[in-house]
Nucleic acid binder design. Structure first.
Length: 463
RNA sequence: GGAGCCGUACCCAAGUGGCUAAGGGAGCGGACUGCAAAUCCGCGAUCCAUCAGUUCGAUUCUGAUCGGCUCCUCCA
């Protein structure tokens, strides 16, 4: 089965045909570096990692770009909102640049722990101001902009296809809510900022043809994606929340600047839910201690979970479905992954039957290529329980199966050996209380103890 | 006010107009063990929120109702 992916633009599954044979260009809206990535962010990055691995499994050379948003932007298009970079900067008494680097490094660390492959290019917004200005100039030349004392705006009325992907009906988009601050200098509510002007309190400032200021939020993705992937490229990813605003605006400014198609396939990852809704600080605080799932990868690790258990959990829900994240589901994933690691290569009957193996392999491949149906992939793999099959598809799953199963062969430290000897002696003497106490000691050190007719085996716990 | 999504066993979660509604975890039964843990084997929804309708036949299509969520505002 040819690789098929769901394109948000057409709302249909489409066969993936790249622009250039054998190559796949991929841009993922990425890191905002004013705080640690939370597990919800990470779910989306895991999805994108699976996508790049599936593309490669299908033989494509992948060029994957993920931006680093290190410019803070105002919450609203006006001047009244809070800027998250600036806020973090004040909170931690560091410059915005230091904040950005710090959290960028933290994110890369999370990536590695989750076996998320580092994208080939991770451009920083602050290092591409020139490219952004160039695009705004192109837009200006073509008559798509207007300038007020507040900012240079994109005039959405000039782009008839505006809001096409999000299926926005602009006439009914007029917000009724009073918590949204409107910028009175805008011509249309949907117009958005390309370049902010006259914001003296903003810490990051650059000079531009329109005056000192800083870029609007959306322009960085247009500038950096086109710089590294070309004016038209294959796949653009992000969270579903980006569909109505961010990606809608990216399409508008990119296509108006170049005059042709920006992205061929749009893919969006759904949200991770906590406590029945999108995760938020207030919601987390409302939850009881024992029911509150970890919200960052570090917290997850501190609470004794393996990062790959979280990755495995992500694989068990489809990327286009919301996923409930609970302590219980994380526990379940953890146990499930441990059992995968316990798969016995010597009992792999499927591996010896070439025909049956080919059938099984094809089933998995078909599921994987059907819009990344990873829950089905995992389901099929679990039902076969074939070590060889797990290993082959671990190239996509990224669960370190070969590595972890081999680790069980390692030599035990002498302190552990001594405990085992002592316990064996106690067992020979049928001194069960002593034997049990020694076993507790071994378990506390992180070892599994198993007594069988063939003797006692002790293995380090993997998860 | 507008747009859209979802509701499958105790939990997480696939799926299909009609063969036995995946898979995982928990639970239960058994094997193993001195007892355990781990592991292995077996069991689990006559039913897919509710109510109508379309259909020879619907969990899967349509409509309504109830419940939950998301977006329209920075957001994965």
């Amino acid at each position: 089965m040819a690789l098929t992916i769901f394109n948000t633009m057409t709302r249909r599954k489409e066969v993936f045909v790249p622009l250039e044979e054998g190559k796949a260009s991929l841009y993922c809206c990425g890191l905002t570096v004013y705080n640690y990535a939370h597990v919800g962010n990470l779910r989306t990055y895991v999805f994108e990692d699976i996508l790049r691995r599936v593309l490669r499994f299908n033989g494509y050379a992948v060029l994957h770009v993920q931006n680093v948003t290190d410019v803070g932007h105002m919450t609203s298009d006006g001047d009244a909102g809070e800027d998250k970079m600036q806020k973090a900067s004040e909170r931690e008494s560091k410059s915005p640049w230091e904040i950005a680097r710090f959290y960028e490094e933290a994110a890369v660390r999370d990536y590695k722990r989750l076996n998320i492959e580092i994208p080939e290019v991770m451009p920083r917004a602050t290092e591409h101001i020139v490219e952004m200005i160039e695009i705004i100039e192109r837009l200006e030349k073509r008559g798509y902009t207007y300038t007020t004392p507040e900012a240079v705006y994109f005039d959405t009325a000039k782009f008839p296809d505006y809001g096409k992907m999000a299926q926005l009906r602009l006439e009914s988009q007029r917000t009724e809510r009073d918590d949204v601050i409107l910028d009175e200098t805008k011509r249309n509510p949907s117009d958005f900022v390309l370049w902010f002007l006259n914001k003296p309190t903003h810490l990051m400032q650059w000079s531009s043809p329109w005056g000192a200021g800083y870029p609007g939020w959306h322009i960085e993705c247009s500038a950096m994606s086109m710089k590294y992937l070309g004016e038209t490229f294959d796949i653009h990813c992000g969270g579903v929340d980006h569909i109505p605003v961010h990606h809608t605006n990216e399409i508008a400014q990119s296509e108006c600047a170049t005059g042709h198609l920006f992205v061929r396939y749009w893919m969006h990852g759904e949200f991770l839910l906590m406590g029945g809704g999108k995760m938020s600080k207030s919601k987390l605080l409302e939850m009881k201690e024992e029911e509150r799932p970890p919200s960052t990868l570090q917290e997850l690790i501190d609470r004794g979970y393996d990062p790959l258990a979280y990755r495995y959990l992500c694989l068990q829900a489809h990327y286009r479905s919301e996923q409930n994240f609970t302590v219980e589901s994380l526990e379940a994933a953890s146990t499930g992954l441990r059992k995968i690691y316990a798969t016995d290569p010597s009992r792999d009957t499927l591996a010896d039957d070439a025909e049956a193996y080919a059938v099984a392999r094809q089933r998995v491949l078909d599921a994987m290529n059907d819009d990344l149906a990873m829950p089905q992939v995992v389901g099929i793999l679990n039902s076969y329980g074939s070590y060889r099959l797990w290993i082959e598809f671990d190239a996509v799953l990224g669960l370190d199966i070969a590595l972890r199963t081999q680790r069980a062969e390692e030599v035990l430290p002498t302190s552990v050996q001594n405990l085992i000897e002592a316990r064996n002696a106690a067992r020979a003497a049928k001194n069960w209380s002593e034997s049990d106490a020694l076993r507790v000691g071994l378990i506390e050190l992180g070892y599994d103890v198993a007594d069988s007719p063939q003797g006692t085996t002790v293995k380090r716990r993997l998860l």
